[in-house]
Amino acid sequence: MENLIRVAIIEDDPRIRQLMQLIVDGSPGFYCHQVFEDCESAIPALEKNSPHLLLLDVDLPKMSGIEGISLIKKVAPNMNIVMLTVHEDDETVFDALCAGAVGYLIKGLPPDQLLLYLKEAHAGGSPMSSVIARKVVRHFHGGQNNPLSPRETEVLQLLCLGENYKTIAEKLFVSSNTIKAHIKKIYSKLHVNSRAEAVAKAIQKRIVR
């Protein structure tokens, strides 16, 4: 029980929800007993019992995934949130990352890959597509001081060029895991940064008003 990765899922489509639960739960090393159809019902439950990983659908009808992230983070701060999306280039994915998600998963992925990514996400190394990388770059350029370390910036730039972990690791003469760690760092900084920015924006708005 201790080595099992506990996963929760918030997905509005009942079939997908059911199937995913079946697959995840039925896969060795995973335990998935918490499934919700929306954030509202998930939040109090997660407060009581927070899993390692939360798979959150970006496209929820009521409270959106992004809104949900901030609330969920409050009740379960140590839980890793991974966004479920049909489309990785969605603007909402990036917003979710800014809001605090540590990664994203493409729904339509072959299940074995899906499970692989889950393991990675749990380990803390979510993939970042070049599109997302470019958005991240743009985002940080917008900010005052670039909070990224030079190494992280390097990694980010290589991600922008579409390189994968292996090649980046080769190029920088480090291991893949180092790279994954860097990416994780980038995500958290993104999260912090965007939160700060949001706050600043709010303050500005208050001042303006």
């Binding site: 489509d13 079939r15 997908i16 199937l19 079946l22 697959i23 049909v86 729904k107 339509g108 299940p111």
Partner: peptide, 8 residues
Amino acid sequence: NQITKISL
């Protein structure tokens, strides 16, 4: 979504 379901 449909494909996901089928895939699963």
